[in-house]
Write a protein that binds this DNA or RNA. Sequence first.
DNA 1: CACGACCAATACCCTCGCGGTATCGCTGCC
DNA 2: GGCAGCGATACCGCGAGGGTATTGGTCGTG
Lengths: 288, 288
Amino acid sequence: MVSAGYDELVETRELRYFVAVAEELHFGRAAQRLTMAQPPLSRAIQQLERRLGVVLLHRTARAIALTDAGSVLLREARTALDAVEAAERRTRRAAADQPGVVLAAKAGASRELLSKLLDAYAAEPGAVAVEVMLCGPGEPENLLHKGRADVALLHRPYDTTAGFDSEDLHTEQQVAVLPAGHPLANRANVSLAEVNALTDLPLPRWPGRDGSYPDGPGPQVRDHTQLFQLIALGLACAVVPESLRNQLSDDHAIVPMPDAPTVTTVIAWPPHSKSKAVAKLVRTATRL
Amino acid sequence: MVSAGYDELVETRELRYFVAVAEELHFGRAAQRLTMAQPPLSRAIQQLERRLGVVLLHRTARAIALTDAGSVLLREARTALDAVEAAERRTRRAAADQPGVVLAAKAGASRELLSKLLDAYAAEPGAVAVEVMLCGPGEPENLLHKGRADVALLHRPYDTTAGFDSEDLHTEQQVAVLPAGHPLANRANVSLAEVNALTDLPLPRWPGRDGSYPDGPGPQVRDHTQLFQLIALGLACAVVPESLRNQLSDDHAIVPMPDAPTVTTVIAWPPHSKSKAVAKLVRTATRL
DNA sequence: CACGACCAATACCCTCGCGGTATCGCTGCC
DNA sequence: GGCAGCGATACCGCGAGGGTATTGGTCGTG
């Protein structure tokens, strides 16, 4: 006999509807996002609750809120929908006649390592085309989950490798980046506490997974180019891996930070990947 | 703005249908398994292929076979369906008024560690009920993937922790288990090669993930009780972690195997688990 | 306190997607 | 050449799922 049957599972449509409602917390807006009318959406959610035998939303006629079970479903439904999307994408890519590999990496990070990796891999016998997908912070995990990428370069502890297979490639110290001429610029080293205490030079705010920025005093940044420009203008400071130093200019000063957590560059891929090309890329990376 | 929309995703129904066909390689039998007629199933698969723009099956009017893209989809669809099933189960369990934790472990393995863990956890303040789910080899990963369990005890390298978060708990040597009185029984130690060479005492065959047994000379076994009985009867030998020695009787002989791979017991849980109870259980386990 | 704005739920209708039965067409095998 | 096996096609009927109109309940507000 073969593997156990999947009977009477929830449909992806229902999960999509629920995610929309749970994110908007508003049937009308959710329906708009789904390009449908509000009543059928209300009914679909009710039906989902009936089928699961679980109350997912607290309705107060004025607003709705997630129940505990509802927030569990929100999280689980997102990963399930990601898995479905990944199945679709990977199948399409497997059928393409030119089976390249998509590598996701944050724009600006690990630039040198990335170029060395690409060169080394290209020199391997039987190497296939590698499409590099540069993206914002927090993105690569998502791309991997959704099957838009086959491998990714991540940076612990900034990124999370949970749910992937991975190999550590490189570990490095972090340094403070300050405007040239700043009082601290000539110090042999600074501590985390000192940098946090610089109210005149706030740390920047990076977008979260959902694209929104946390509250705080610092400027909003999307990538390191922006960040370094703001620092050069004397509007911010930052704590970054030291390998970024070759992207800096004379307007910047660098100070080692012995007590900042080290950053590890890892190469990660979805578990159970059977791609020979990914395996070879990983092997090449670990040998650098 | 919130996370990107999931537009026009494949429905779980279509994935279920495809998995059935891909596993049976026969539309008639697959339809039977799905309790439906064959024609709508054929059409559904055609429609899936059209929507994906990918040929999934080679049809030769006499038999069908998976294309490369088809086998990719088979693998990906299984994990996607597992994720959907997990979403459903975890949501239901989150809504239950008595939120226990389900711990999966292979029957007979790590018996002592398991009982110590349960005792230690039960003594913790705020401990919830732990339901232990004893299962066959290869099962625990599946139970975690499908949301039937919240944590599991696994044994590398027999089990794979790919796709989970995990903590190592204990590493041990393996030993050969032979019938008492066997020529090798009094040796100080034996090698893997020697055990493999015992044609009169074959190694047993364990069921694979799909429940079928590989070909070979050895007897088919489902658990360690069966196995040890067969060994006592002089019908087999085995290589097992040494912590199983207290489940043996006078009819068995144990010989250390220095060159067999060590076995590591790990506690594993689905990534991004937010269960406080699981976290506490893991913490308790690592402190044993 | 009454009126209006807002929002989810209900009522009702209609379309088309999905499943069922009957049949065809192809292929390999006695 | 005839038959058996299997997937594809043709056609039909039903009901799930979506649309419009409306209700009902709950806040703000003058």
